[in-house]
Design a protein around this nucleic acid. Structure first.
Lengths: 245, 245
DNA sequence: AAAGTCTAATGGTCTAACCATTTGAGATAA
DNA sequence: TTATCTCAAATGGTTAGACCATTAGACTTT
């Protein structure tokens, strides 16, 4: 630290830009700047190669990058091609998952986080939910209760309703970061090592239905504290179910 | 919804696996399963082509995918090659950022989330910090105070100490999910549209130093409520600074 | 010892062809 | 008419072999 200027954050790593990188960046820029919208179709690989004055291989490598980044989607055949897609919340879950796997996070840690996080989200929802969102929450709650009373309804379907409920609560919090993180954690839950375990008893179904109703009630009555408490109970109950088994 | 079974979540999209995808997956599996560790070097493209019995182009496309997913890094020249790298927290920030840009989240929303999130993290830290972590927090606090008294210390350096402090608090929460999300949000803060703004006055510097000390004190005295409150105040104070300017 | 030069290994790119998939148009059959 | 089959065209997927560019280290020269 002596006789040597601290250049941290001033200079950037030199990186010779490879052809395909350049192309991938140009296309991505066009998307971010709004010149290309989701749903648009890029020219064919052969046309792109001519436009960028490179070989088809180089174009293809650029497309692979964009595809891996979930910026475009590729379909074969006539009327196929390279289509621009919307960023999906699940991909955040994927990279969080990679990080978690690497750092060795556990299901307990995820559960603990979810308990706190969803509790606060519910509190915000109680503060800000629109009338339409309140109605929607009640609808999902009713749907869950109705379908949960018969064992003809598969467990997976009920879990789906439950996640739908949680996401609607996140929407009602009117904070897009929360929506994104909510969906990310759900993406993790639905997969791999941190996956939820199937616990499907009559009591579980009844308890879930009661949980959703009490959360909906608390949010509807704008009772932030209660909404937070009910949601925390609901999430932790399931977390415990999963990890006690 | 009538006369037609709901197959949601039961069947998956059919996707013919392309050669390069197969190869990319195999390599990724080898990494996740521990057969390949970060730092390891894959065989050269030519060798991989022979091993997988495909052309070099196909191998290269697979490498492009892995590279885009930040699973490997590629260097040219002799002794260069394809090296396996660790997943970095910043990449989570990147995908969250993409999502946020697309969904149009604002700096206010991020600020609101951080206030709640970091508050809870501090509360957990107060509960679980190890003696070593308490010492480390005090060290960073001291470092910040000492260096902040002279304007020779650049603003960027102080922000760095601040982030270091927040990450240490996250570590002290002993929840790896929180560490990951903390780093992710910091990654966002350091870039682009949601970037923090430079506010560097004598009062700001003093206030920051006081903030860190009071948080450290609260955590050290195991006062969860106070730690949460102090952290919330600290974060929201900065958020307001940034957004009021 | 220092500087320059050469060499081999590795990724980056190109060319030109062929294969595989998909859609729609047109021919054919019921 | 209607249903089915066939075929053509466009698009991505793959191949093979060549050459270029970059890099580290060995070797040579000064």
């Amino acid at each position: 630290m002596e006789g040597k200027a601290n250049l941290g954050g001033i200079f950037n790593k030199v990186q010779p830009v490879r052809g395909f990188e350049d192309i991938a960046m140009q296309i991505q820029e066009a998307i971010y700047s709004g010149q290309l919208k989701s749903g648009d179709r890029l020219p064919s690989e052969r046309d792109l190669a001519e436009m960028f004055q490179v070989s088809r291989s180089t174009v293809r490598e650029a497309i692979r990058v964009l595809e891996a980044e979930k910026v475009v989607e590729v379909r074969r055949g006539v009327k196929g091609g390279i289509i621009i897609v919307e960023p999906k919340p699940e991909q955040v879950g994927r990279s969080i998952e990679a990080l978690i796997r690497f750092r060795g996070a556990t299901a307990e840690e995820l559960g603990e986080f979810r308990t706190d996080f969803e509790g606060q989200t519910a509190a915000l929802a109680a503060k800000r939910a629109t009338p339409e969102q309140l109605i929607r929450l009640q609808e999902i709650t009713d749907l869950f209760r109705d379908e949960s009373t018969t064992f003809e309804t598969p467990w997976a379907k009920l879990v789906e309703y439950d996640l739908m409920f949680h996401e609607e609560v996140a929407n009602a919090s009117h904070n897009k970061i929360r929506v994104a993180i909510m969906m990310a954690t759900h993406g993790i839950l639905q997969k791999s090592s941190l996956s939820i375990e199937k616990v499907d008893t009559t009591e579980w179904r009844k308890q879930q239905a009661v949980d959703l109703q009490s959360i909906t009630d608390a949010i509807t009555s704008r009772d932030q504290k209660k909404a937070q408490q009910m949601m925390e109970d609901h999430v932790s109950r399931n977390v415990n179910k999963y990890t006690d088994s």
